[in-house]
């Protein structure tokens, strides 16, 4: 088991965005998280990385190394840094703050850039990249992180078909290598075609399992019904007080 979540509640200002979630992810599974806006998809990933401490419940992901691609990257694109140096920081777990990037590691940087179709970009400043190229760079860095658990928040949004297909191939390569991948997606067609498992989330878990059993008309309708409730005068959650 790569991930065990028990009775997890995450939220902001005491209002839950993810409510009493139980979830088990098998090692090596490739899972899409889908749900309407405000369903708590990004919040769940933030909880898994530890960025947002839980209001309640437990997350057990063992000692697995984790890599995370946020929805809104906080990369300062005006910073004078070359693509190669930026991607090389995915090697942090190997070189740390002081180690040198050389020999095999330097080759890995080149391989990662090649895998996302950016061969020859290593000396280009990150300020000179397009949005799609920057997303390829982020994937190259994820490749180097060599993580067992990979969390992707809307990785293919605002990309052209070619770029999305290339990066999807990277995700499938991770799946083939036995890594556990969890990705927030909105493109149902892509989910049905490429993601064996799906978690349908609408603050609470609507359904989790094989994609075609989860993405039924009935489940999707139920997810839409669970509104984006942020009620200022909401009562205390009875399940939380127990």
């Amino acid at each position: 088991m790569a991930l065990r979540i028990r009775d997890l509640t995450l939220g902001y200002d005491r209002h839950p965005a993810v409510h009493h979630l139980d979830l088990d992810l098998a090692t090596g599974s490739l899972t899409a998280i889908v749900g309407p806006n405000g369903a708590g998809k990004s919040t769940l990933l933030k909880g898994l990385t530890g960025e947002l401490p839980p209001l309640e419940g437990r997350i057990d992901r063992g000692a697995a190394r984790l890599a995370y691609l946020p929805q809104l990257s906080e990369v300062d694109r005006s910073f004078p840094l070359a693509v190669g140096a930026f991607v090389a920081m995915g090697l942090w777990h190997r070189v740390g703050a002081f180690g040198r990037v050389r020999g095999k590691d330097a080759m890995r940087v080149g391989e990662a850039l090649a895998a996302v179709g950016l061969t020859g970009f290593d000396r280009r400043p990150i300020s000179a990249l397009s949005g799609g190229q920057m997303q390829r760079v982020m994937f190259a860095r994820l490749l180097l992180q060599d993580a067992e658990l990979i969390l992707l928040d809307e990785p293919f949004t605002a990309l052209d078909t070619k770029t999305a297909a290339d990066l999807l191939a990277v995700v499938q390569r991770w799946h083939g290598e036995g890594r556990t991948v969890l990705a927030v997606l909105h493109d149902m067609e892509a989910v049905r075609r490429h993601f064996p498992e799906t978690l349908l989330l609408a603050r609470e878990k609507v359904a989790h399992g094989a994609t075609d059993t989860v993405l039924t008309a009935e489940n999707l309708f139920r997810a839409r019904q669970m509104s984006e409730a942020f009620d200022d005068s909401a009562n205390l959650c009875a399940r939380g007080a127990a």
Binding site: T49, E51, L66, A67, Y68, P70, S73, E74, V75, D76, F79, L81, F86, M89, W92, H93, G96, A97, R141, Q145
Partner: peptide, 14 residues
């Protein structure tokens, strides 16, 4: 450098 360029990443790896 990483804290300036991508603070969230630095926090996630160290």
């Amino acid at each position: 450098v990483l804290e300036c360029a991508d603070p969230r990443f630095l926090a996630s790896v160290s």
